[in-house]
Design a protein around this nucleic acid. Structure first.
Lengths: 336, 336
DNA sequence: TCTAAATATGGTATCGGTTACACATTCTGC
DNA sequence: GCAGAATGTGTAACCGATACCATATTTAGA
């Protein structure tokens, strides 16, 4: 492979000049520039990113840390992150943590050694100590959803509480009179805030009872199990708000298996707005977060931070939107 | 950040010795080793991957090139790739091509500059010229599904033709007498081979007609449109084999919208075995590829190749398996 | 006891870039 | 016509590792 010195020799200039041409900085005469560019062409020269990174202290690499890329929510985020990164000339490194603190630690270590320019965490296992350490190591980071308490860092998130209330209001508006909630892990901000939103929205009703809440681990399986328990416990439930779409999908499946018409007897709404909510029949109503936008915004912020732009806000909150579709009463024909 | 020289100084040895300790090669006295390790601890030393890559010609990085990470098939592959890579100490860089040759070219360029140790292509846009170029540049690669014709390279794939026949046989076995096919893009080996498998399996039947085949672009939308057209054209269709699960999912949705009972009036089977086939009611019968295994195997092969192991086979074919579930007749209770 | 092999360690060139600094030439404005 | 800024280019130190080679000491075998 040709090196910068080969190019310099062929173009009969110094390596410094070639470097200037490559990076388009400093003064270079127009003809010299052309000469150099010809040499580059001729030699099929490609600058070595390793050498560049070593000398220039920039690797043009971002680390994306998430629980599991095969979860559709995260793969949509990942897609957005990569798109924006690519646009700005950055490369994305993928890290699956399975929400395991040890794995996360290992990745942080490895990414530090790799001198990634920045890190994006879509993971609830991030610890305050890590944030401080990364700050000290001068590695910019952006956190999706939630940062550890008491440490300053950039966060991009959605209005979970508001979204939960939106969901409940929609169920009430479409005639539901007894609404259950399938909630996500309470270690996650997402799971917790949506649960709180639900409670705040329903606790003043006479029918409210804590037994209307059931955990579903943010998974399809969990959603199925929770729906089954809920319907057994309270056969008169006529609305279910699931804390994310996967659990809602599971609940839908279980209800269909039990022969309970959706939305005929039970209305169902999820949260997130992943694509999969459109593949079922009926389509799933949901509180949509702008998933792609969240990933894209987070990445743009991260890159700004890397490039030294001062950012005022610490937390960026994204709006959520009610998608009323077939799984909630009165919307059987919606979304077609 | 501490460097190897800081460690050397603190431990009162040379950098060469520290390097030996780090890489566990060459002769090092036991006590010296401990001294060095203590210094490493004390300084919280982390070797700089850039420097290592530059000096040692190994970056411990793999590039994963695929059309779109948000497609569940590919995100499952990606998960497998990253798991295995992580296990062997490699880092995975993500590249979404959208099956766009230009984008792919750009990525190949960028990855060459980054001196990735190997590349994994799960993309049908790879051109013969690229393979040759990568060979010349001495960058190992593994291709999922299909390599360009006439170039030697490692391929990991599934038995598509056989799988298609398995699907048809299953539909016939469960009583179908007029089977349609929704096929994928014919530029892809996957799409083509499954279509051929279908044709070979059904062309001897009196009911066979080319109008029983309809393209569906491997997408949910495409599957819906195709199912609609097919049912309009041949209302007596009682079985549909879709060339992948996404199209089958789309077809299922459309059939349900049209009020056509599945599997009551039409049996439906997909191909791939993605997780999503389990979220519908009825669950989708499918010809399952071992998706995770494919990704994992491809990665293991790639790493072997990187580490200089001679590999005999050029093509590794994976077995496919019939998953008879609710969407095909006689299996309404299956999978519960 | 002598020699060759095994063990242990250090010095330093090298990988392929960036960039500070030095030096030369050409513009400008007064 | 000249000072000082703007333009243009080269030299070489440096980034932080690896690894080749040299050298010194121990060990083992004959």
């Amino acid at each position: 492979m040709a090196t910068i010195r080969d190019v310099a020799k062929l173009a009969a200039v110094s390596v410094a000049t070639v470097s200037r041409v490559l990076n388009n900085n400093g003064y270079v005469n127009k003809e010299t520039k052309e000469k150099v560019q010809q040499a580059i062409q001729l030699l099929q020269y490609e600058p070595n990113t390793m050498a560049k990174g070593l000398a220039g202290k920039k690797t043009e690499t971002l680390a994306l840390v998430l629980p599991d890329i095969s979860n559709p929510f995260f793969s949509e985020v990942a897609r957005a992150v990569e798109d924006v990164a690519q646009l700005y000339g950055y490369t994305v490194v993928l890290c699956n943590t399975d929400s395991d603190t040890d794995k996360e630690q290992t990745y942080i270590q490895v990414m530090k050694r790799r001198y990634v320019d920045g890190m994006l965490f879509a993971s609830n296992t991030l610890r305050a100590a890590d944030v401080l350490m990364l700050n000290k190591a001068n590695i910019p980071l952006v956190v999706l959803d939630r940062a550890p308490a008491n440490v300053p860092c950039l966060v991009v998130r959605s209005k979970n509480n508001e979204g939960a209330k939106l969901a409940i209001r929609h169920l009430l508006d479409t005639g539901c009179r007894r609404i259950a909630h399938i909630y996500g892990p309470q270690e996650t901000a997402t799971g917790k805030e949506r649960l709180i939103g639900y409670e705040e929205a329903v606790r003043s009703f006479p029918w409210y009872s804590p037994t209307l809440m059931e955990p579903g681990q943010f998974s399809i399986q969990g959603g199925m199990a929770a729906a089954e328990k809920l319907m057994e416990r309270h056969p008169d439930i006529d609305g279910i708000f699931a804390g994310n779409d996967l659990m809602a999908l599971g609940a839908l499946k279980k209800l269909q298996q039990l022969g309970i018409p959706v939305p005929g007897r039970v209305s169902l709404i999820g949260f997130d707005g992943i694509e999969l909510t459109r593949i079922t029949e009926p389509e799933l109503s949901t509180i949509a977060q702008p998933i792609y936008e969240i990933g894209a915004t987070a990445t743009r912020l991260l890159i700004k931070k890397i490039e030294g732009v001062q950012l005022e806000n610490e937390t960026y909150e994204c709006e959520v939107e009610l998608m009323a579709r077939g799984s909630t009463r009165g919307n059987a024909e919606a979304g077609r």
